[in-house]
Amino acid sequence: MKICLMNHFSDKMHPQLQSQGYEVVSENQCDLASSEIEAILLRSKNLHNLSLPKGLLAVARAGAGVNNIPVERMSEQGIAVFNAPGANANAVAEMVLTAILMQVRHVEPALEFTGRLDSHSENLAQQVESEKSQFQGRELQGLKLGIIGLGAIGVLLANKAVALGMKVFGFDPHISVENAWRLSSEVIHKSSLTALLNDCEALSIHVPYMEATHHLLNQEKLALLPAGSFVLNFSRDEVVDRQAVLSALEKEQLSAYITDFPESALLQHDKVMCFPHIGASTKEAQENASTQVIHSLDAFLKRGEIRYSVNLPELPAGEIPNGCSRLLVIHQNRVGMIAQITDCIEEAEENIIEMNNRSREALAVTLIDLQSDKNQELLSEVERLEAVLSVRYC
């Protein structure tokens, strides 16, 4: 199988994939018109305007967001899309804590002050002593931190903040059972966004960007925060209404806005701290994300197992039994599809050893172990079914 690597990856990536039996080509060696490319592994490369290989089975992004991937188009073609949720969670959580400390201890203006000092001045010590009071801050102990979104990043941030003595409030109506178990019992659950906002001195938002979260923090929501609070956005730029933030800063409703998404309207504002999108930029996070998507990709290509897909259902799968073949069918989630597939198998006089079917919204996946070798005629018959998007032997 041939995998195309887009964007830069660590030197470990090629040998790791090659050791698993894959042929690896880089982007400048990759002919996307070739039907030989079966998987694409990328970071930030934009696929929206590219023609993709006809034989493409999967796209995997070494990161959490998939805005650079045309997921809907992939789904229509039965192409699996994988990401690496949680791989960069620790890196982002640590960056948010860094930003909180910088804000409450006035680190940025303090550094600017010392940067302007004359190192040759005879009165240097006296000047420092006379001016340092303007940078008096507060400690993290007791700071009221609100967190919107208790996914992998939100949970880690909440737990770290609790350990540092902060009073932490959390809101997430869709928190998973796994994340609920991982969340510290000291985190105070809020049943509504309004209740959360009313209690915050600092607010950090950690939700994916989608239609429902566009401008989640708008003028109305920001007005619910106590005067003088500050907001941190290391999630996505569009989840916060930038103009509403600027207005709240001018009215002193907010004391500061800290974001990982610099924009021209924010860069020159003295109450805005912008980072150059470095929340997940650690060697550890990048290697974790790469390792995670390689495992997901390998399990899917070789066994039909689906983990961490953004468009297909989770589907566990063990090793293919000796002497058997495994058929993977990605199809529209319609009534009667399993019957149509099994009719094809019956007509081919094949015997089913085990079958698993899972669905996710408009798509479904059927995984079937057959007591026979791979049968190309059966493959062709299943492929002809109207609602089948893709079918292959693993």
Rank of each mutant, 00 (worst) to 15 (best):
L224A: 08
G78Q: 05
F171S: 03
R61V: 07
M95G: 01
E94A: 14
A212G: 03
Q141D: 12
S184I: 13
L183I: 07
Q219L: 07
I258A: 00
N28W: 10
N322E: 12
G318P: 05
G336P: 11
A317W: 05
S119V: 08
L193S: 03
E108D: 13
S19I: 04
D31T: 07
E131S: 12
G146K: 01
M102D: 12
E252P: 01
Q286R: 13
S19F: 09
A161E: 09
V335N: 08
I175A: 07
Q141F: 08
S26W: 08
H214K: 13
F300A: 02
P208F: 10
M273R: 06
L196F: 03
M210H: 13
M74I: 07
V207I: 14
L224F: 08
Q371L: 09
C200M: 09
E350P: 00
S372N: 14
I37M: 08
V59W: 08
A299F: 05
D270Y: 01
A339F: 11
A93Y: 02
M6K: 01
A58Y: 04
S235N: 07
P313T: 10
H206W: 05
T98N: 12
Y257M: 04
L327M: 10
L41K: 02
P276N: 11
F261R: 03
C4R: 01
H269Y: 03
L5M: 14
P316K: 10
P15A: 08
S185A: 12
P276E: 06
Y308M: 07
Y209H: 13
E284M: 12
D11K: 10
I338D: 13
K190I: 02
L312W: 08
L328Q: 07
T282F: 05
N49K: 11
A227K: 15
A248C: 09
K12C: 01
E377D: 14
D298N: 15
G151P: 06
A125P: 00
D369R: 03
R326V: 09
D343T: 09
S44N: 15
I175C: 02
E186N: 12
H174Y: 15
V293P: 03
V231Q: 00
R384L: 12
L156C: 00
